[in-house]
Design a protein around this nucleic acid. Structure first.
Lengths: 357, 357
DNA sequence: TGTTAGCACTCTCACCCCTTGAGTGCTAAT
DNA sequence: ATTAGCACTCAAGGGGTGAGAGTGCTAACA
């Protein structure tokens, strides 16, 4: 095959195999990979000189780099990307690990608000990276029930139970003393109008509380209904309700973060909730239900340059969606992370289905 | 005064002044303090040689150390302890900062579940350390109201509103299909029996649900009441309901944590929820309402060796108590931290009083 | 034409040595 | 009791060196 000086075309099989070998070697050892070590540890059937030629070629294509002249090769973000997209073959998660995870979930079957935390914890322990998870959040929240509880004479707590079970609460200052009986009556009136509606629908019906000769109670009911709608709006507006993470210590202990500045960056990466929320929105929002991978510099914020995210949505599209995943060093085992995240998101799907059954 | 070779007695005024000077100098510069620099920057009225003699004396008493022979002096934990207990005079927080804090709190007056978060955030920004806070938690939780909401035919959500406003929720699997009307009836029955009671009192009254010819509904009511009591018990058992922290980055950026291993330790310190919970219990549990300081090695866990905690309880003793405070490097400005924590805990007291007014 | 042995070359890393400067502790004088 | 003076110690930084790792290139080979 004459002069295949590929600039962007597909890699031939041998070149692919060597790229894969470099990545898998580097992922396990964290040491730049030399041509020598590849020949020793993988059955490549060629000499180190040939491997060197191919490594140089891969470097020209931007898939590998060099820390310095006399060092081995290290994958670039583009290298990892190609590996994840085209080279790696994803086996399902080993049965042992599947069992471990199922066992852990078996313990908390009826504590829905703990599911997503457990998902993060489990992901962290299985992948040895940081586990991330958000609760399943409906596209447009609907009210299941409203409650008004007296705190003291001039202070009440407005409790809104959302359809999928989560609860929002706020304090309401009262201009005049109102007792629990009256509040309960108000709550009943609210429930009669507001149950099963979303923010917009409630706002359209606010006028119903304005009776011709409006009394004190009507005004308060109107106010409470408006606040209920506001609560739903706030909830809808937040791309991510809550982000739970566990096991960041796994990532911080990786050798590439033995430098204090890089360590602070990893921490900052996990603290960048704005970016993570945007990313999560992207993962949960599109129809695509599969695992998504975001590698190093592919993430805009600088503090993400050394970390990758493997994320998957879960839930019921159109009803309620959440996200689970891991954050690890760019030098992570992508096949294992992808397999684990895929399995856990499937498990979360089952749990959510059970809730809506 | 001939030959005052004190071994543990109180320090004379000049010695105290020099200890104070060393600490305050070290806190601001983070550089070991030399006799020379003390003479230059503080009006001590003696030569550096004399200061050296006193420094040597303070070192013999265990209040200062030496990183190495030709380095200046650094306070020990015992030095900080003495400083905090006997030497420093605590001025109230400057009016400017009081105003800043009050202003921030003005924004969220009616969102009680955000108060403690705001306290942590405020403490972090004012003290430039990590702010910590827990919500006010009653000694023995009492029920304000119970709600049972149908999730699907065979799944219900039991919602328990506690007297001070916080809400607990759990899923309950139902052996047979039960509709919302029935659940509402059950909830009413529960409320009639259970409102204003604590876990123990509910458990004593469980028998009331066992009528002679017990029907299906009686059994479920009994079960729900037992679960309600269980929820209260879990809540009571947790020393700290939730610990919110903010501004750890302040601490991580301090020069003493430029080493990756120490940096990881700081992170681990904040993650050691078990120890923090114990400490918080100690602060909120005893009658003492004042600020408490825990310096470096005084904390048992090794990862706490380089950090100190300044904590204060808030709330209404006997009703509901929480904790606010800061976690910073041992080399922190204790007077400022103590002043700020004291002020914020006072503010939280006002807010809680308002809630119970 | 692709592969390989061989070799020169480059660069890091660890080590050592040396110098500089900071700061102490001690001693003798006041 | 205080202080000036001085010898001493040690960390930190710079420069030099040798070893080792790994490459890139070239020329020979199948």
């Amino acid at each position: 095959m004459a002069r295949v000086r590929r600039s962007s075309g597909p890699l031939d099989l041998r070149t692919q195999a060597i790229l894969r070998a470099v990545i898998e070697e580097y992922v396990t050892t964290a040491i730049p990979v030399s041509s020598q070590s590849l020949v020793e540890r993988y059955r490549l059937g060629v000499s180190s000189a040939t491997v060197r030629n191919i490594l140089a070629e891969l470097e020209r294509s931007g898939l590998l780099t060099h820390p310095h002249t006399s060092a081995g090769r290290v994958p670039t973000d583009a290298g990892y990307r190609l590996y994840v997209e085209a080279i790696v073959d994803l086996a399902p998660l080993p049965a042992v690990e599947q069992l471990m995870i199922r066992h852990q979930f078996g313990q908390v079957e009826y504590a829905s608000e703990h599911w997503f935390r457990l998902a993060a914890t489990t992901l962290a322990s299985i992948t040895r990276a940081a586990g991330l998870a958000t609760p399943a959040k409906p596209r447009a929240a609907r009210v299941r029930r409203v409650d008004v509880v007296s705190i003291n004479e001039r202070l009440a707590s407005l409790i809104v139970v959302l359809r999928e079970g989560s609860i929002k609460q706020q304090l309401v200052a009262l201009d005049e003393a109102i007792d629990q009986a009256t509040l309960t009556r108000l709550a009943a009136r609210l429930n009669a109008t507001v149950v099963d509606l979303n923010a917009e629908q409630i706002e359209r019906r606010l006028a119903r509380f304005d009776r011709p000769n409006a009394e004190r109670e009507d005004a308060i009911a109107h106010d409470l209904a408006a606040r209920t709608a506001g609560t739903l709006r706030d909830y809808d507006a937040a791309a991510v309700e809550e982000l739970f993470s566990d096991g960041l210590i796994n990532v911080m202990s990786a050798p590439e973060f033995s430098d204090a500045a890089k360590l602070r960056r990893v921490w900052a990466a996990l603290q960048n909730r704005a970016y993570l929320a945007e990313l999560f929105g992207r993962v949960a929002g599109t129809g695509n239900e599969d695992v998504r991978v975001f590698i190093g510099h592919e993430n805009a914020p600088v503090e993400m340059a050394d970390v990758s995210l493997v994320l998957a949505p879960y839930g019921q599209p159109g009803r309620a969606m959440g996200v689970v995943g891991v954050l690890g060093p760019t030098r992570m085992s992508y096949p294992h992370a992808i397999g684990t995240v895929r399995f856990v998101s499937g498990l979360m799907n089952e749990l959510v289905d059970h809730l809506y059954a």
